[in-house]
Design a protein around this nucleic acid. Structure first.
Lengths: 159, 159
DNA sequence: GCGATATCATTAACATGTTAAATATATAAG
DNA sequence: CTTATATATTTAACATGTTAATGATATCGC
């Protein structure tokens, strides 16, 4: 018994040990995100949509034409992932994809009526979940959280 | 040229990112997380470690023996991912894996000296980055953020 | 105009995320 | 003791994350 615990504490007294994982910011961000997303995923799954695919068509519902780079920025999806997502959504008739005539490198994306139909079916339930979240924590607290997260997001810009 | 861009650039002037996306909690959590992680990944890559693999061995540096279920909980990694990570780390001699003699279903994990060597090499630089983060935002603010994130993480429990 | 350089999108290769199903072991009910 | 049920881990299949390399088009400098 004492033998067993002595080895453990020997390891733990090492000064080089990393910070306790319980208060790790990356994991805390992951947990919070998962807590929110777990409410959305089942509803999206009913429409054979992933969370990332939903982000893409939601942005196209707000803005008629978006090129791939802008989409990657707004939806926070890396280019290689976006390429695959665009291919899948186009094959399923949810979005269209055309070369930009003024810049042959760019790809212009638009949502189709089929895509808008999904938006219209999912949006009400999506709002309901956000409302529940706001009711649970209060709008002020969520705004405050969003502000702090925005601030943390600048950590990579300011060295 | 000016005609073409006028309608859209007016919209864009209000906010480079549309309010809906920019003030979306899931994406804000993602952005914040990425801002933090982008500082760690290059350093982990030097040791051929992914972020998730680092979480696993860091937990094993704190606690001598951890079974797979407990690891999944603490590192916030789903079981199928953990299975693959354990296989990779074991093959590389960074951790060991044994059946629990009292419960044949369970798998017990331990870190090896080679694993501890990685911990000792990475930890100082890791602490440096966290210190920079703390200096940038203040310890109180980060503690406050962690508290709020913990609270959001309970959103899935309390319906 | 032409060549060097930059930018945008895609592909490749491997790791992880996600859900469902399969497997192995443990525990409870009878 | 045996069957049914529950739990822990693994496997499978597909989607996305991540970095590096490639191909295509634009743009800059001369």
């Amino acid at each position: 018994m004492t033998e067993q615990s002595s080895a453990k504490s020997k390891l733990q007294q090492d000064a080089l040990l990393p910070r306790n994982t319980r208060r790790s910011l990356p994991i805390a961000l992951l947990r919070a995100r998962e807590a929110v997303m777990s409410h959305f995923r089942p509803m999206l799954a009913e429409h054979e949509m992933t969370e990332q695919q939903w982000r893409v068509i939601r942005i196209l519902a707000e803005q008629e034409v978006v090129d791939a780079s802008e989409m990657a920025d707004k939806a926070f999806i890396l280019a290689p992932s976006l390429t695959r997502i665009i291919r899948s959504l186009e094959e399923r008739g949810i979005i269209t994809k055309h070369k930009d005539e003024n810049d042959g490198r760019r790809v212009l994306l638009r949502i189709t009526p089929a895509g808008m139909a999904i938006i219209n079916e999912v949006s009400p339930e999506s709002r309901l979940i956000y409302d529940r979240l706001e009711k649970r924590f209060g709008r002020d607290k969520i705004e405050q959280l969003l502000d702090m997260l925005d601030e943390v997001a600048t950590f990579n810009e300011t060295q």
